[in-house]
Amino acid sequence: MQLILGKRAGDAGLASFEALVLPHAAAAYNLARYLMGNEEEAKDVTQEAFLRAYRAFDRYQDRNALAWILAIVRNVSYSALARAGSAQQQAVAFDEDVHSSGESMSTAAFGHPEAQVDRQQNADRVRELVARLPLEFREVVVLREFEELSYKEIAEILAIPEGTVMSRLSRGRSCLRALAADEGTDDAV
């Protein structure tokens, strides 16, 4: 009988997990997609992160749900990257992934900045630039620019001091602008 009661508690747990944590699935996927570099692994990582979060949900104490799930996504991503090899290899794999799947940037658009570039091309270009950042800069850029987390929240997720968040973010942004300038798209990015 206790077990059935336990089961009921589980249902309530799932409902509140769905209400609190699941709304952050899009943010979780975006981070996973940028850390892993391809759709399949990003999906795997996101699912694994949510399953882990759900299993640990009874220990969740009214914290910032977004920061919490993103920290778990990051942990799961790093474990997966460590299994797959170094982060460096992964960056190379990303490029191949982008180019082989036909998502590559339009060289015509770069050659002619005045040409109309559609939304998809803009997206491809911006994502490619972020993907080329070293992992440690990429993650702070994603957490700040897309999720608009505070330096304090990012510091907690990464377990580093706030000052380090500031300097990494600053270097990450400089890198992005330099990369964009190399591409000759400085005025667009």
Binding site: A26, Y29, Y34, N122, V126, E145, A180
Partner: peptide
């Protein structure tokens, strides 16, 4: 840069995910 990232950079979840 911030504007451009926010407008274009986000990866949206694959359909059905």
């Amino acid at each position: 840069l911030q504007q451009s990232l926010r407008t274009h950079g986000r990866w949206s979840m694959p359909p059905g995910f």
